[in-house]
């Protein structure tokens, strides 16, 4: 099988919390064909060289968002990145930046999951609606206001890209804010004022310094940087006009 295959060197950041004091790099020589993704390269290592190599993956087609890692220092989904594009150079795989490493290429996402829960990522209806009243109607215009922000697959590449999240892990961050914006923009939702408390808080949008790298690495073109910056304007408006609003705005 390996006769016609080229060999690429894959350098992998290894870390076993039970035996290693700190992460270290190990190099593997992996035979590959032109149709092999970086993920398949990692799988080859696991199957043939070291069964303890640990990484997340599921769908192999850039929709589950599990296989994000740093590939030569850039946050990417390893299933849609191909070894042929790096050959004959060595390729370096590391766990996603800015997250604690659990083992090898697997990071601890519990902080992100907490943030995701905190934005209330579901439609909170403006008013209760009985079955007899029928379905919610939405115009194509109303639909187009939020559809882009529904494409997020929670791969957290934007968090690995965001220098501000790297400096302060309390920052709600690009992905969760993009999803927050998705629900705020939905004509069926009525909880924008409730979510404003989080947007305008010290963990909120003003951590962002408009670097824009999150949108660059987003594999689904969600453009989280845009969502964050729209919400800076929203938060500033809420800050100055909250005393004029009949409801008094959020706290």
């Amino acid at each position: 099988m390996t006769e016609n295959l080229k060999i690429i060197e894959i350098e992998v950041l290894r870390y076993n919390p039970e035996s290693d004091r700190e992460p270290h790099l190990e190099v593997y020589k992996v035979p590959f064909s032109d149709d092999m993704s970086v993920l398949q390269g990692a799988q080859y290592i696991k199957d043939n060289f070291d069964g303890s190599l640990t990484f997340r993956w599921s769908c192999r087609m850039a929709i589950c968002g599990s296989c994000g890692m740093m590939i030569n220092g850039i946050p990417k989904l390893s299933c849609e990145t191909f070894l042929r594009d790096y050959y004959p150079n060595r390729i370096r795989l590391e766990a996603m930046h800015h997250f604690p490493i659990e083992k090898d290429l697997v990071v601890d996402l519990s902080g992100f999951i907490e943030k995701l829960e905190s934005i209330q990522p579901y439609i909170i209806p403006k008013e209760p609606r009985s079955l007899e009243q029928g379905e919610y109607l939405q115009s194509p215009k109303q639909f187009s206001d939020y559809i882009q922000f529904t494409s997020c697959i929670n791969c957290t590449l934007c968090y690995a890209a965001c220098p501000q999240f790297g400096l302060n892990p309390d920052f709600i961050g690009p992905g969760a804010i993009a999803l927050l914006h998705r629900y705020n923009m939905d004509s069926r939702d009525g909880a924008a004022a409730e979510r404003m408390e989080l947007v305008a808080s010290e963990e909120g949008v003003f951590h962002c310094s408009a670097v824009g790298y999150c949108s660059e690495v987003c594999p689904k073109h969600v453009d989280p940087a845009n969502a964050v910056n729209i919400n800076k304007t929203n938060a500033a408006r809420d800050y100055f006009l909250r005393f004029l609003s009949p409801k008094g705005g959020s706290k």
């Binding site: 408390e197 989080l198 010290e202 800076k232 500033a236």
Partner: peptide
């Protein structure tokens, strides 16, 4: 919503 959120005064400077 997370408890203990403090409103940022960043809008003034921003």
């Amino acid at each position: 919503m997370k408890p203990g959120l403090k409103r940022s005064n960043a809008p003034i400077f921003w």
